[in-house]
Design a protein around this nucleic acid. Structure first.
Length: 488
RNA sequence: GGCCUCAUCGUCUAACGGUUAGGACACAGGAUUUUCAUUCCUGUAAUCGGGGUUCGAUUCCCCGUGAGGCUGCCA
């Protein structure tokens, strides 16, 4: 199937948009079809510089590269495919052509009403508790007058003539049978007075010409679907299938808004979420596999996804679950990749980390302790900077380490570690030697290990004492132990 | 106001009309562990209300209620 994602370049990619794009991508891949990207920039005033580049790079980050249409090539925005152009502002003559056809066939009519009159009309209708709809004032104009005004080039729009006795039905891929009464459907503006089409005309023309089989879009389009269906009919075309996905909501169930939390996908990238996390999360928001599997890669989603299992109700964007997924994915990252990525980040703070041949071993120690890569450098800092240690840190009530006991404990540790040969400097040996002493000296494991770990890291919590000692090496371990003896 | 849509734990959700209403997140307790984290176990917690249909409704129908969307020469 050919599916598409068709954002307006009005800013950053919205997470709801990213989810819609994901669904469209999944269906395309699943059916061995194509995923197209089209830019809908028919509102001249709202286009934002750089927005297209931004959306494309976010989509790329998420792994949703288009097969056709607008894409990045060598760092610049390019278009690929035989059904282009894929940017609506470059397709104006096409819309013009079909608009004229609709006009000629009597399915659309020119409207000269001023914005002021329209506002006044709507206010009146609202006051009379009627639905605000165009009153067809301009359909009453004499033919001659219409021709004259058009000839004079008077500003006007083109409206769709909706048959009021028409009953619209279609089967939505997510919601099932839908029915709309013609008399409740407004005569939508198709062409604006600036010569640009509205979304309604443009997407119909494009989706037909680009041979889109399935339109997946937000629920906010549901009530204008009859207009689109009518347009396809009037143009003599077969409409695509439609799937209206439920909206993403704030914690208070209102439409997801910037005011309450991050809506730009880019903000989640900056916060350090992995693409796998966001994709997995977005897929599970409103869709379920029918099994109890929670963790899905993009590849797995292609196999498992189906529109029939997409929820009809809106879903709250639950940050707590997002963070849990992030933890799952960061731990799923192969150690080599985790280490590589962490190494770059750590080197920004501690340049020597860049050439650390044992960096991978250090990274392994915190792989299960971080949720975000950016927590890493802080946790690894003690490897590159001598920690500040004092008696308050070395002592610990819960482990029954009093300040009075510290000198003895540190002495025992020192003696044990000094005796351990460099070649035996491994987690197993250290564990064996130190625990043997614990018994002999009538100290608990905690009484020996808390001070050791604290002396080596300077932290109240960190990776384990043996692992840290091994990663640090014998020399540094003894040096830090000595420093601890001085302050206790 | 009008039109449309939706409604299961706090959240995301499962359940061909028959289940002790299941799972996950969060929360609480516990186990493991030298700390923290991870991991594991246990627990608290839901079918919006009212009518039908049916031997039996979370499930089907109707009416409410609540929420959301649309109601632009925005998309």
């Amino acid at each position: 199937m050919r599916t598409r994602f068709a954002p307006s370049p009005t800013g950053f990619l919205h997470v709801g948009g990213l989810r819609t794009a994901l669904f469209a991508y999944l269906i395309a891949k699943q059916t061995k079809g194509r995923f197209l990207l089209r830019i809908e920039d028919t509102d001249q005033g709202r286009s934002v510089e750089g927005a297209v580049e931004n959306m494309l790079s976010t989509l790329h980050w998420a792994g949703l590269d288009p097969d056709e249409g607008v894409m990045m090539r060598k760092g610049i925005v390019a278009q690929e495919g035989t059904k282009g152009p894929y940017i609506q502002s470059e397709r104006l003559s096409l819309y013009q052509k079909y608009a004229q056809q609709l006009l000629k066939d009597g399915h659309a009519y020119p409207c000269f009403c001023t914005p002021e009159r329209l506002t006044q009309m709507r206010e009146g209708q609202m006051a009379r508790k009627q639905a605000p709809m165009y009153d067809r004032h301009c359909t009453q104009l004499p033919k001659k007058e219409i021709e004259d005004r058009l000839a004079r080039g008077e500003p006007h729009v083109l409206r769709l003539l909706v048959p009021h006795d028409h009953i619209f039905t279609y089967a939505d891929e997510i919601r099932g049978e839908m029915t709309f009464q013609g008399h409740t459907v407004d005569d939508q503006v198709l062409m604006k007075s600036d010569g640009f089409p509205t979304y309604h005309l443009a997407h119909v023309v494009d989706d037909h010409l680009m041979e889109i089989d399935l339109v997946i879009r937000g629920e906010e389009w549901l009530s204008s679907t009859p207009k689109h269906l009518l347009l396809f009919e009037r143009l003599g075309w077969t409409p695509p299938k439609y799937a209206h996905v439920p909206l993403l909501l704030n914690a208070d169930r209102t439409k997801l808004s910037k005011r309450q939390q991050s809506v730009a996908a880019e903000e989640y990238i900056q916060k350090g979420y992995l693409p796998e996390t966001l994709i997995n999360f977005l897929a599970l928001l409103g869709w379920n596999p029918g099994s109890e599997q929670e963790i899905f890669s993009l590849e797995e989603l292609i196999g498992a996804f189906s529109l029939e299992r997409v929820q009809k109700a809106g879903a709250i964007f639950d940050l707590a679950k997002l963070d849990w997924l992030q933890g799952q994915w960061i731990r799923k990252l192969p150690l080599a990749e985790f280490a590589d990525r962490l190494q770059m980040l750590t080197a920004e703070r501690f340049p020597e980390a860049a050439h650390d041949p044992h960096f991978k071993d250090k990274a392994a120690l915190i792989h299960e302790r971080v949720t975000f890569l950016k927590e890493g450098p802080d946790m690894l800092a003690f490897f590159y900077v001598d920690p500040k240690v004092d008696a308050d840190l070395l002592a610990n009530a819960k482990q029954k380490v009093t300040k009075e006991l510290l000198p003895k404990i540190l002495k025992v540790l020192m003696q044990t570690l000094e005796k351990t040969a460099e070649k035996d400097w491994s987690v197993e040996t250290l564990k064996e030697n130190i625990l043997a002493h614990a018994k002999k000296e009538e100290l608990t494991q905690g009484q020996l290990l808390w001070p050791l770990r604290a002396a080596l890291t300077g932290l109240p919590y960190s990776p384990g004492a043996f692992e840290v000692a091994v990663a640090l090496g014998k020399d540094v371990t003894l040096t830090r132990l000595k420093a601890a003896m001085k302050v206790s």
